[in-house]
């Protein structure tokens, strides 16, 4: 017996299984990052002084642009699946992965600079929360890149056999990727600008 509603939507809910699953997962992610933002607020309220302007705003702005761009390429990859243009899909998904990698490389330079001049997590609570938040976010980017690479490479075989199901998978991967972008949109001002 096959599991129903893997490909098509259940009429009452209007969604297929994986879409319900990913949104619930993202809901839990909201609570995860929510707890860390709460931590940030409590630490900042409790701190006599809070460092300002010690992070590289220029690099972070570039990184914000990189992630936003990767979000639009992701959504374009999905749209290409809908228009049944597999070549374009691969191009856009490949770009998304590369942009993710770019983000990580820039992040690496930022991190190594901080470590070089002694801004390590144990320096003060600001660097502690900075490294925890961006580190966890970085892991999420990495996770998304792995998933996307799978769909770009071996996972794309499904396009031939079950194109609708494959499109669903790209949609779900996209939802996750946009969420990672969304988290960064809040991280950027909180850590770099305020």
């Amino acid at each position: 017996m096959e599991i129903p509603y893997v490909v098509t939507a259940r009429p009452e809910t209007g969604i297929f299984n994986a879409k319900a699953g990913i949104w619930l997962f993202l809901a839990s992610e909201v609570m995860l990052f929510g707890a860390l933002f709460t931590t940030y607020i409590l630490l900042r309220i409790g701190a006599p002084t809070w460092p300002h302007g010690e992070l590289d705003v220029a690099l972070a702005t570039v990184n914000t642009a990189v992630l936003i761009t990767s979000s639009i390429t992701m959504v374009m990859a999905w749209a290409s699946c809908l228009t049944k243009d597999f070549k374009k899909f691969r191009l856009y998904l490949g770009l998304t992965i590369l942009l993710g990698a770019t983000f990580m490389v820039i992040k690496y330079f930022e991190y190594s600079h901080h470590f070089h001049i002694g801004d390590i997590p144990s320096k003060n609570t600001f660097y502690a929360i900075y490294f925890t938040l961006t580190g966890l976010h970085g892991l999420h980017v990495l996770g998304g890149m792995i998933v996307n690479s799978y769909f770009w490479g071996p996972g794309s075989k499904m396009w031939k056999s079950e194109p609708v199901r494959f499109t669903n998978r790209i949609e779900v991967a996209g939802l996750y990727w946009h969420f990672v972008d969304l988290v960064w949109i809040f991280l950027f001002p909180t850590l770099y600008l305020l």
Partner: peptide, 18 residues
């Protein structure tokens, strides 16, 4: 954030359950 959630994650036209 609302723009990303609303359009890229197409929350503007999502189902009630979500």
């Amino acid at each position: 954030g609302s723009l990303v959630a609303g359009y890229f994650m197409h929350l503007v036209s999502e189902k009630k359950v979500i």
